[in-house]
Nucleic acid binder design. Sequence first.
DNA 1: TGAATTCCCATAATATCCCATGGATTGCCA
DNA 2: TGGCAATCCATGGGATATTATGGGAATTCA
Lengths: 150, 150
Amino acid sequence: MFLSTATHSIDAKGRTSVPSGFRDAIGEDAAVFIWPSVRGAFLEGGGKALMDSVQREIFDRVADGSLLPEDAEAQQVMLMGAAQRLGYDKTGRIVLPDNLRQHANLSASATFVGLGNRFQVWDPEAHEARKAAMEDRVKASPLVMGIVRP
Amino acid sequence: MFLSTATHSIDAKGRTSVPSGFRDAIGEDAAVFIWPSVRGAFLEGGGKALMDSVQREIFDRVADGSLLPEDAEAQQVMLMGAAQRLGYDKTGRIVLPDNLRQHANLSASATFVGLGNRFQVWDPEAHEARKAAMEDRVKASPLVMGIVRP
DNA sequence: TGAATTCCCATAATATCCCATGGATTGCCA
DNA sequence: TGGCAATCCATGGGATATTATGGGAATTCA
């Protein structure tokens, strides 16, 4: 499970460390899958398990009629077509390709945000602003915590 | 799994490199299967596993009555009948036959787009236009990401 | 025999691996 | 509980391997 938030530096080679907790969540195949979000200037990602889930989810929805084949293909193009498999070395580092860096406006460092089954990568300042907005929204919505089924 | 997008040059002999990530996804039999799309000026393709899946899928749908035998044969003609098995050499290159090149209007380079269990091959500019359209479509349709079942 | 195709080698750019280091945290044991 | 040792983590730099691509030699086909 991808948990917590960590900011790591991006060195001259474009390398950055995947948070160690994320690596534990991924399992044996040492790689993350990252793609540009269609919803803003940040990256989305996960492990192999997430990619498999996405693929199955798209298939199932087309099969049960809740997603048009054209929409399914659009999502596949924007997700699978843009996603990169980034293997990390023994020290847990990936290299962020230029196109991903540019999409998220990443320069000296990157903020990894765990979201359970997936994670996001933000420019640190952009994430601060985003987080403030999220806090307001949470306060105005029905909180899950407190009424979770035991 | 076929992931990411890569544009590779087509040299004077008609050779182009299959993206290395695609080769990893294919396995031991060093070949891709490519055919002209019936939906537009691009190519569709995959590995041996995809061809087997397509064949089984067609069979199953005929068996459960959701596909007419005549339609099944039509699809077989346009898919199996048009598909080419293109083996790649030690450096990962295939030669794109003329009929495929012409169908997709390929000249100096080809863009490979991973779509999970399959991929597409586009002329680079055509793919840019297509991708923009896909992005609009994605923004207007229910996103799979974010609500993937854990 | 001529044209096309396949195979093989070369190369520059890039990505990957490997070792080293410092800082912080954790664990252990008195 | 306090302090020392060991471990883990993030990061830097250099060495190695891979990739994409060009060109030539060998082979096949008509």
